[in-house]
Design a protein around this nucleic acid. Structure first.
Length: 422
RNA sequence: GGAGAGAUGACUGAGUGGCCGAAAGUAGCAGUUUGCUAAACUGCCGUAUGGGAAACUGUACCGAGGGUUCGAAUCCCUCUCUCUCCGCCA
């Protein structure tokens, strides 16, 4: 969530930045300021009563020791009166704090300066393009036909075992999954990332920490018996490593990479655009996460973009990078770049990576700070990006590399696959 | 799953009703000194939040939440987690 400090000190700037998302949030911000002011007033009077009460308790203690029981008993009555008032003020303060917190949770991150106003994906800005239109046969097939033809993915079997959106990868299809995961992890290690393998279920506190809760409650699989959530992305467990942590300055930047399966309910989506591997309930992804000093976070974001670019280029996939407009950005993000790979047979762009800087939005919820040279605790900036998500990469690799003899596999995967064509 | 023990600051660990926001040690930071790859000594060294220009000061926090009491790290209740033993098991 946004920091109260920012809302208080840079009110108009925050309102202007939030407006880029396509909604006027000035009412919410004014409400926050009003609640904050009330809260502080309430807190001040409560603390004055508490201080008085503490003093009386001390004096009573002293009187007892001095053997002045009568005087002590008299002062107890004073204390009782204060106690009543304290109870009332405590309730009032707790209510105000709760209201303030709820309001704060509802407000999305303020987009950074580079983000343009916009409401729909059509208003996203293409900032980079690479690659050429793949040369494929006139009768080129979409990947859902190729996966059947070469027995790479069995959607029907997944339906039987679990349900729609939970495919079974088979034979060379399964091998391709493993090859991509290893390739992505190795590339990240080369780029200086540290590998972690986190849990794929997280508790409620972690869901709040990275902003999935309460915003996206319905999008996650929820094991109610244990109150655990299946992760929608490795961002959640990997970033939550740093929840309630005060880092030393020399530990930054932290660069972690992890592979996990990801689970998304995607409630309400259906139709042809979710066909095949285009949209799944369970999929594999390698995620990169960085924890950075505020002044370096945009540089870190650039580094992450370069890393993902390199992956796409090695895979030989035509792609473009979009800078998302305010309205298309996720709740917690300050700036997001999406990578889209070109699917030759479907003749459309498929999102394969989303790389974002959250500035202090997640850090504020996570309470992840670092100690500066002069001993002050400051919130860090958090960033993450897919590097990369598998299913649509597989879709594009299959579709774009098909020829009359099968499907060519890119050079970079040969050693991982143990074969060079399907 | 059963039985028992426990949860205190970055770490180890003392503290069973007021003298405790908390001993001591370690680590860290600053300095002094001796010299050699380290040691000794001195000082500083939790977090959040309110007020204040600041110095400073109020409040809360000893796993979480509630209760008893004039007063709780300390007593009571609930929950969570950890450890040990047993059971089960990849």
């Amino acid at each position: 969530m946004l920091t109260l400090q920012a809302i208080r000190n840079n009110t108009q700037e925050i309102i202007d930045r939030l407006a880029k998302r396509g909604h006027d949030r000035s009412g919410d911000i004014q409400e926050v300021l009003r609640l904050d002011e009330q809260k502080r007033a309430s807190q001040t009077s409560l603390e004055q009563k508490l201080a008085a009460s503490n003093n009386i308790a001390k004096e009573i203690g002293d009187l007892f020791k001095a053997g002045k029981k009568d005087e002590a008993d008299a002062r107890k009555e004073e204390s009782a009166v204060l106690k009543e008032q304290i109870k009332g003020l405590e309730t009032e303060l707790a209510e105000l704090e709760e209201q303030l917190k709820q309001k704060m949770y509802e407000i999305p991150n303020a987009p950074s300066e580079q983000v343009k106003y916009g409401k729909t994906p059509e208003e996203n800005e293409t900032v980079f393009e690479w690659g050429t239109e793949p040369v494929i046969p006139a009768d080129a097939k979409p990947h859902w036909d190729l996966t059947t033809q070469y027995k790479l993915v069995d959607f029907e079997l997944g339906n039987k075992i679990t349900g729609a959106g939970f495919p079974v990868y088979t034979g060379k299809g399964a091998r391709l999954q493993r090859a991509l995961i290893n390739f992505f992890l190795d590339e990240a290690l080369k780029a200086g990332y540290y590998e972690v393998q986190p849990p794929i279920f997280v508790n409620e506190a972690s869901g709040y920490g990275t902003g999935q809760l309460p915003d996206k409650e319905g999008q996650m699989y929820h094991s109610t018996i244990d109150n655990l959530y299946a992760i929608p992305t490795a961002e959640v467990p990997i970033t939550n490593i740093y929840r309630d942590v005060i880092l030393r300055e020399d530990e930054l930047p932290i660069k972690n990479v992890g592979y996990t399966p990801c689970f998304r309910r995607e409630a309400g989506s259906y139709g042809s655009h979710v066909r095949g591997l285009n949209r799944l309930h369970q999929f594999d992804k390698v995620e990169i996460v960085q924890i950075s000093k505020p002044e370096n976070s945009y540089e870190a974001l650039e580094g992450m973009l370069e890393h993902v670019k390199g992956l796409m280029q090695k895979l030989g996939l035509k792609f473009r990078i979009l800078r998302l407009c305010g309205g298309d950005m996720g709740f917690a993000s300050a700036l997001t770049y999406d990578f889209e790979a070109w699917s030759g047979a479907q003749q459309k762009w498929l999102e394969v990576s989303s790389t974002s800087n959250f500035e202090t939005f997640q850090a504020n919820r996570l309470k992840c700070r670092y100690k500066t040279k002069d001993g002050k605790n400051e919130l860090v900036h958090t960033l993450n990006g897919s590097a990369l998500a598998l299913p649509r990469i597989v879709a594009c690799l299959l579709e774009n590399n098909q020829d009359e003899n099968g499907i060519k596999m890119p050079e970079c995967l040969h050693s991982y696959l143990g074969f060079d064509r399907i």
